[in-house]
Design a protein around this nucleic acid. Structure first.
Lengths: 369, 369
DNA sequence: GCACGCGATGAATCAAATA
DNA sequence: ATATTTGATTCATCGCGTG
């Protein structure tokens, strides 16, 4: 059977994959169900309801069933991959550890795990965990000594002529005009991926004319970007409604038209790190419980809390600037200039401590600017 | 056996862990080996040691052995953890997927995966992959519905009054003066973790006086930071040379004096005196029969009953929280923030009314602390 | 036309203390 | 262990309506 290029195939991904010739695909991008296991409804503090992922395709009877599902589709993927091919799989902590372990068990050789860091993630409304602000991608070759495609210079070019790193800061989530909507304005697919993400994936690990396959095609972002980058693509999708959406998006692509915004990727490491007071606390340059003096006369004091806030003698708590302002009848105050620590009888300003930190850590040397 | 607090115990972590009393530890930080050459450190599930192995293991066998090792020490950790305890494990793509999957298999409930992003990672010299610029930490509770410690407010303080996210930019690696060196200038331990990393781990998920255990103590960063933050600590380490290094580092720590108010990071600065809704009714700040609006849109209303319960338009009766919850499909609801009274055309929240009551009655003046 | 304010929303395993 | 009570909690961005 010849490869059914540049089309969406309707059906179960394992069944379809097994009809394709083996060792025929150059690159696979897979965005499988994450098996989120959400318990209850969640409301924002402003009482609006969170539109969570509750689709049937994300429900599994057990973790074991999810493992079995994962092993099956990864095995089918491995069969169709060329020996020189690679595979990307994206997930979150709900599923990515199982996916990664099974990939290793199947003989895939992990080349990188890449962190997609989100600029505007949904906050943790209840304040009970850290804001879940990233997703993880695993990039793997077909085996330990397999050769593979990695467009090093292209990636370097995307990153201001420095090596592309494993932490990817992408422009905002797939929202706004990029997000495909239904006629009633709802999102058409609950987990649409941003084109900028697929852009890096496809550009880094395939060449023009290669065949890119996506076994969980969904709203078709993989096809959109593949077409734009002059790759062939194959999408597999179970649900008709998604296929229609994807086909419409892909048909609208004019490959010669490039959208500059898509290429605009930020590297966080570019800008020199700003040293906050909390950094000095975390690194032990000042200590929780230590006394600070406001001015050198020692009449006004505060202690450093573990969270880097100051606690004044009269019980006020806040940042070094707020606490200083508190002692100045709420006049604006630069805490770096007005708070002092005492070392061997000497009064040393916080600004001086920060300066020592910068020198010690070589923050001046490494930065070209 | 009483807990051997604030000391390094020499020996194999599984053997030592199994001598400690069960459910006695509040927090575990584990930095396990992630190289797979573990021939001399491997254990079977029955805790027997694996004999020395041939040096030509195939991949499957060594991965299997690593899994067994991982399952064994994680099981020993779970036994000693209090039900309210949590565990952090750090790793890279070589091992973290196996670690995470096994943690889930053992019943740990993952709360977050946290990405430690390095500002000065080692480049990929050959240009064949993305620069590996991060490590992954998994934070998990003992089970799905376990309660646990998370010092939300403290983390918010460390992050410029915004929620702490799952991507941690720590400045910079353990280099310079922090890095422990041998007399010949070599680094004393190959995987020394920065104190700033442990600072966030320990501060976020434990309280002063808690017991923090590190089964792979190494150069003792966990002990250094735990001591600084007035936590008790237990280190387990196999190699004498590391124990000496660690002990020396920890002995050099002079923690500031413990002051309960300073080290209390759980509650917000000003603990406002508690005023129940019934008090407002009794004092006439709101009146029986008065209409309340749920949100500002005036579509959902209730009236105040003489017993300070609310009666909604559809006949439900209960506290301000229950009545709010009733209008939100039984989702949790803080009535103080969501119910409003109308005064001269202005919508005023109940929380604001309560605040006025507190000020009027001078409830803040009486507080000393 | 442009500035500004307001509302909506994103793969989310989202409460804790007391009786 | 289970039921009840109390009350803690949001960030960045986009689109749209208004002045």
């Amino acid at each position: 059977m010849p490869l059914p290029l540049n089309q969406v195939i309707e059906g179960d991904c394992v069944e379809i994959l097994n009809t394709l010739p083996e060792t025929s695909i150059d690159l696979i991008f897979a965005d499988p169900p994450y098996h989120l296991q959400l318990q209850n409804e969640l409301y924002r503090p402003n009482m609006t309801k969170v539109d969570a992922v509750d689709d049937d395709w994300d429900k599994f009877e057990s973790m074991q069933a999810y493992d079995e599902f994962t092993r099956t589709w990864l095995t089918a993927c491995k069969r169709v991959l060329k020996p020189t091919g690679t595979i990307w799989v994206i997930g979150t902590y709900h599923n990515i550890f199982r996916v990664g372990a099974i990939m290793q068990d199947l003989g895939f050789w992990i080349l990188n795990d890449v962190i997609w860091i989100k600029l505007n993630p949904m906050p943790n409304f209840r304040g009970v965990r850290f804001t879940n602000a990233h997703e993880t991608l695993i990039w793997a070759s077909t085996g330990k000594d397999a050769t593979y495609t990695f467009n090093y210079y292209a990636m370097k070019g995307l990153n201001d002529e420095k090596q592309m790193r494993s932490d990817w800061w992408l422009l905002p989530l797939a929202t706004g005009s990029e997000r495909v909507k239904n006629e009633n304005g709802d999102k058409a697919h609950s987990t649409q991926k941003p084109e900028a993400l697929l852009y890096r994936v496809i550009l880094s690990s395939s060449n023009p004319g290669d065949v890119v396959l996506d076994p969980f095609f969904g709203s078709g972002t993989t096809g959109v970007v593949a077409k734009r980058l002059h790759r062939n693509w194959i999408g597999i999708e179970k649900e008709k409604k998604y296929i229609q959406i994807a086909q419409k998006r892909i048909d609208a692509v004019q490959p010669e038209m490039f959208d500059a915004a898509t290429f605009d990727v930020k590297s966080k490491a570019k800008s020199a790190p700003k040293v906050e007071f909390s950094v000095l606390v975390e690194h032990g340059y000042v200590q929780p419980g230590q006394r600070l003096f406001f001015g050198k006369d020692k009449t006004k004091v505060a202690t450093i809390k573990p969270d880097s806030r100051l606690r004044t003698a009269d019980g006020f708590e806040g940042s070094i600037h707020q606490a200083g302002s508190h002692y100045m009848n709420n006049a604006p105050c630069n805490g770096w200039e007005h708070w002092f620590i005492e070392v061997d009888g000497q009064m040393i300003g916080l600004g001086e401590v920060r300066e020592k930190f910068r020198v010690d850590k070589g923050l001046y040397n490494e930065r070209s600017g």
